[in-house]
């Protein structure tokens, strides 16, 4: 439903978005990841029709954003970065305005507004001016504005920025609920968010698309993916280390800091393959004095850092 082709934006000599191509279909929640200044917001601004692309194109539900901007805008729900809304209005009058401009009238308008208010739990602040609302409510007013017309395409630029953990949880649930029949793009730099809601992840840095994977695939790239943590009595470290290191599928064994009389080893697998079964088999066969095994999934943080750092190296090489 969203198709970007070689989308590019230059601000003077700075290329903020550099030839990004991708498509997002119904039912997908695309996590848009990248360090600050990577070009996430600029990309969204082009798709939403706020900025004109320098070159390339963005197509939403079959309409080109430059040629048919109003058609595109009527199909998108867009939450700009920091969720701006008219501060001197109340959520009630603001949402009435949005509903009217989205083409709803009379009963239908009232119904949409009421439904959205309930969905985002805005009832208690409906009559208060937006300027006086807490950060959490303000950001939910922004979100309400984006989903009021039940759009086919939803673009949220850092929707959970500045929310407390409960509010984040609420917003993530909301995104998951809406995912079924929409194409959603969520930009964020919070990695746990990606694991929580996204079906697909892209990482951009310096305006370039670096990866396009599922969160699971991305995790698999982690150096610690499928590594096994082995805990035992401190006295037993050496024999255990020797036995495990001798396994064919093991790349290496690191000794980690232990707790008091416990010691911990991290067993790194070859090619990220699962090795925990083999290790536990070995432990049973040799009756090794191991107390605990723990399989690591790896961390997106680490993958994210690896990927974006590598690109910075590339960037400097170019310059």
């Amino acid at each position: 439903m969203i198709r970007l082709r070689e989308l590019t934006k230059k601000f003077g000599s700075l290329t903020a978005v550099d030839g990004i191509s991708l498509s997002v279909g119904r039912g997908e929640v695309l996590g848009f990841l990248g360090p600050n200044g990577a070009g996430k917001s600029t990309t969204m601004k082009m798709v939403s029709g706020f900025l004109a692309p320098t070159s390339g194109s963005a197509n939403v539900c079959g309409h080109d954003v430059v040629e048919e901007p109003v058609k595109v805008k009527s199909r998108i729900g867009y939450l700009p970065e920091r969720g701006p809304s008219y501060g001197d209005m109340t959520p009630q009058s603001f949402l009435n305005f949005i509903a009217a401009i989205r083409g709803f009238d009379g009963n239908e308008k009232a119904r949409r507004v009421a439904q959205t208010v309930e969905r985002l739990a805005l009832g208690e602040v409906l009559g208060q001016t937006i300027d006086t609302l807490s950060k959490g409510f303000k950001s939910r007013v922004g979100l309400a504005q984006a989903i009021l017309h039940d759009p086919e395409v939803l673009m949220l630029d850092e929707p959970t920025d500045g929310l407390d953990p409960n509010q984040k949880h609420h917003v993530r649930n909301l995104i998951r609920e809406m995912a079924r029949d929409k194409a959603i793009i969520v930009s964020t730099h919070i990695l746990e968010e990606v694991e929580a809601v996204c079906t697909r992840v892209i990482i951009i840095a310096r305006g370039r698309l670096l990866t396009d994977d599922t969160p699971e695939e991305l995790l698999a790239r982690s150096r610690h993916h499928n590594a096994v943590l082995v805990t035992m009595d401190a006295s037993a470290v050496e024999p255990v280390q020797k036995e495990i290191a001798a396994l064919n599928s093991v790349e290496g064994v690191d000794i980690l800091d232990g707790l008091e009389d416990r010691a911990r080893l991290r067993v790194m697998p070859k090619h990220g393959r699962p090795i925990v079964i083999e290790i536990s088999g070995l432990i049973r066969a040799k009756n090794l004095p191991v107390r605990e095994l723990h399989v690591e999934k790896g961390s997106l943080d680490e993958v994210f850092r690896d990927i974006t750092r590598a690109s910075e190296g590339m960037g400097e090489g170019d310059a």
Binding site: G49, F50, I76, P84
Partner: peptide
């Protein structure tokens, strides 16, 4: 200044 222009210009109006 307040950023609402991004909201206004991404609503379905010319």
């Amino acid at each position: 200044k307040t950023g609402t222009i991004e909201l206004l210009l991404t609503l379905p109006v010319s």
